[in-house]
């Protein structure tokens, strides 16, 4: 579930507000995204990879927040971890051409 929006990383582009399929975010008076409907989050991690500055963190627990802090996410190097895994960078798609799933399909039989 979405838990952290880093004020220092966020550039107020509001892409997360737009792309969240579950409409979890809203904008506050300063134009900063806020987690307005946390319980609607489907833990899909897609807001993270669309964020151009890796300012968002979605914890893996799907049923409720675990209370992880920005400091811990920063310390453990978890900002942008899914984007790096995919090969996406700065909110731009990339890396599908290096997908290795076809090896798994051969091996699974």
């Amino acid at each position: 579930m979405i838990e952290v929006i880093s004020d220092s990383r966020c550039i107020r582009c509001d892409i997360c507000v737009r792309v969240c399929p579950a409409n979890v975010f809203a904008k506050d008076d300063q134009g900063l995204p806020i987690i307005a409907r946390q319980d609607d989050c489907q833990t899909c991690f897609l807001c993270e990879i669309y964020c151009p500055t890796d300012a968002l963190f979605v914890a893996e627990a799907a049923d409720g927040p675990i209370g992880i802090t920005e400091a811990e996410v920063e310390d453990r190097g978890l900002f942008g971890v899914y984007a790096r895994g995919l090969g996406w960078s700065k909110g731009r798609a990339n890396g599908a051409q290096f997908d290795t799933t076809h090896y798994l399909r051969v091996a699974q039989v």
Partner: peptide, 18 residues
């Protein structure tokens, strides 16, 4: 196989990473 899973299934790896 471990490398292929990590590189081919990055979404699936997220709970473990986190």
């Amino acid at each position: 196989l471990q490398d292929w899973l990590r590189q081919g299934q990055p979404n699936v790896m997220q709970p473990y990473e986190r």
